[in-house]
């Protein structure tokens, strides 16, 4: 049973068909890369899988369960986590608070109006641990608004990993990073545990190709090609799409 399956997914905005009959089948523990030129519908596919927008047709299943009609929050509770291409953190809060919010999303504690969050030991221990993994524990008490862009990208990943997801969607985790920062984030990506099924959108081919085993090529909202890394890289369609795009 594959943890993430997408079948015949379609979505239009007005007259524009941004997702056309997309099939995606990601095996347990797989690291999948989705490539394609801008406007190929990659982020829309993520938004559909995460439940932020509703598909017009098609099915999505997570861990063998049909989630096509489940709200986004239910998908999170079933083990789906994602990061965003455009950083969406809580700028007035500290790093540790950001990660704590991610952790609490899956805990009943999130409804508690009386506990003092900064004194909840299990949350703060887990949050420190998550920051440790991305190498930012020394900045735990700094505000996001005073944190560099590259570090924010790491916090994004820390928040997703803190939820210990079964399926992780990474939307351009390297976007806008300097060469040095890229190297760091790349190591971080490679250190994601193997049992986490990961789907990544990324334009930086050097990093992406080191990360992925299988690649899906998208163009104009549809899947053009799906195969192993070498198959897709060497396929004539790949060159066509990128030259045409």
């Amino acid at each position: 049973m594959n943890p993430l399956r997408v079948k015949g997914l379609c979505k239009s905005f007005g007259g524009l068909r941004v997702t056309r009959d997309v099939d995606l089948d990601v095996a347990a523990g797989e690291r999948r890369l989705i490539i394609g030129p801008n406007g190929a519908g990659k982020t829309t596919l993520f938004n559909l899988i995460a439940g932020e927008i509703k598909p017009d047709a098609g099915e999505i299943s997570l861990m063998g369960r049909d989630i096509t009609r489940s709200p986004g929050r239910a998908r999170a509770h079933m083990g789906l986590a994602r990061t965003y291409q455009i950083i969406t953190l809580f700028p007035q809060d500290t790093l540790i608070r950001n990660v704590s919010i991610a952790l609490m999303g899956l805990m009943p504690l999130r409804w508690n109006p009386f506990a003092n969050l900064s004194q909840c030991r299990d949350v703060s221990d887990a949050a420190h641990e998550a920051l440790e993994r991305v190498g930012l524990v020394h900045l735990a008490d700094r505000k996001i608004s005073e944190t560099s862009y590259g570090e924010c990208r790491r916090v994004e990943i820390a928040m997703a990993l803190a939820q210990q997801p079964s399926v992780l969607l990474l939307d351009e985790p390297l976007a806008g990073l300097s060469v040095d920062e890229r190297r760091g984030v790349q190591d971080l990506l490679l250190s994601i545990p193997r049992d986490v099924t990961t789907v990544m959108i990324e334009h930086d081919m050097d990093v992406a190709l080191r990360f992925a085993e299988r690649i899906t090529l998208m163009h104009f909202g549809a899947v053009v090609l799906d195969g192993t890394r070498d198959e897709v890289v060497n396929a004539p369609q790949t060159r066509e799409v990128y030259l045409a795009g």
């Binding site: 439940g51 965003y84 953190l89």
Partner: peptide, 15 residues
């Protein structure tokens, strides 16, 4: 406060 600042993200986090 999270729902005030980033409602989309809060949903994705399970809230």
């Amino acid at each position: 406060r999270g729902t005030r600042d980033e409602p989309r993200r809060m949903t994705a986090l399970g809230y």
